[in-house]
Design a binder for these strands. Sequence first.
DNA 1: GTAGAAGTTGACGCGGCGTCAACGTCAAGC
DNA 2: GCTTGACGTTGACGCCGCGTCAACTTCTAC
Lengths: 252, 252
Amino acid sequence: MEASIQEVARLTGTTSRTLRHYQAVGLLTPSRVGNNGYRWYDEDALVRLQRILLLRELGLGLPEIARALEAHDDETAALRRHLEHLRAESRRLDRLVASVERTITAREEGAGLMAEDMFDGFDHTQYREEVEQRWGADAYRASNDWWTSMDAGEQAAWKARAADLTNAWSAAAGAGLDPTSDEAQALAQRHVDWLRSVPGTPRDDDGTPAAGYLLGLADMYVADDRFRSAYETAEKATFVRDAIRAWVAANR
Amino acid sequence: MEASIQEVARLTGTTSRTLRHYQAVGLLTPSRVGNNGYRWYDEDALVRLQRILLLRELGLGLPEIARALEAHDDETAALRRHLEHLRAESRRLDRLVASVERTITAREEGAGLMAEDMFDGFDHTQYREEVEQRWGADAYRASNDWWTSMDAGEQAAWKARAADLTNAWSAAAGAGLDPTSDEAQALAQRHVDWLRSVPGTPRDDDGTPAAGYLLGLADMYVADDRFRSAYETAEKATFVRDAIRAWVAANR
DNA sequence: GTAGAAGTTGACGCGGCGTCAACGTCAAGC
DNA sequence: GCTTGACGTTGACGCCGCGTCAACTTCTAC
């Protein structure tokens, strides 16, 4: 009629440690405790344990299980609440998976766009003439030479950095921030620093990227399909443009 | 050029506590520490922090982030591993959701089958005559009276108990256990105890459910479509039958 | 009497920080 | 020069659900 703690553990496929824990948190009290301290469980305790284990298998936390077992007919309600919770978790995971997939893709291909077409981009857009007039037609060749001189590992690292920057922009834009906020301006600073590290970038006398170049680039992010798609939506590309414009206004 | 810990926190949308933690786990070291102990972060540290935060947003753990940042071009590989992990988690959640849904359904409807048709079931099957001959035609009426005499709360509690038993059977059968294993026999014991608590159950002189009744019931779980579907598959219903048969053989 | 199985309590550990607590530092205003 | 308040520091506990020692007692069988 009564079972020892190990017998209960074997019967239910759990461990004695777990049973002690359940007692510690007030979830399952042994029906009897011998004067030697041994715990004994009767039929009722076993049934209660089964219900606990069932709810646990369904993913409920111990405190919720305790609450559900208090008011007996409230269990279905608890399950329904839990179901909502699980569904929300599932959606969160799905979004995460999509995010990771996008990041991997960005690092493999999108980064290439940033890295290789960032300069090349001018060749295909309405800005071409203007840019060539201002900074000369060999800016592309210079950057291309720089790029092809790196080995695969260096290129990969550089791509990753570019892709992360794109991702950070996307996240900031998606968070509903203001383009003039601290975070956005910090990103703009990173963006400028990143351009600064790129040979072929047109510069002012002090070596920093030229204000006109930055503004032209910012406009292009919105106007050019390929860049716009790198930032996912037109709204996000606009956010990037406005943040860079604000940065130029504040720092030049 | 350098930012204080709070400035960094504001810029990146995190907290100073987090930055200290990252230093404690060796993930991000301040570029400089004043002789007053204050931490200062430069451009490089900020870039590293951004990459950390990106990976964290994607759900990677701090140790994995540390590893990914060690070997720079290994980040994409880390993301790919992480993606697999996330997908597995997603599948697990989906299974959980399905399980919870099934349990709720079982408690609402399936339990009704156990509770109301458990006896009624005889009326529709090939076992009707046999059962009526052995235990009398008024067994159903007795149990029906008992059932209708409970209020809604009592009925709900009883349904939940019945549904849990069904669920436990389903889980045990799905786990690939042997019908004669300790766990399966514990379930059979619960099943018999449960029948024992039901008025109208044919009994032996000692008040326990009659062996013949148990065996008939066990056969019916496999033979009758409605019971078989309560246990989801024919294999699971067969598992229940075999476990009950083994229990009868061992205890009667 | 002794070995071995099974029981006990007590404690740390995990992940990623949030949240006190208790105290030092620095710039600004009186 | 003193106070005030913002900002900095280190240190420690808490969360969740137990797994996993450790150190010890109790029961059972030979």
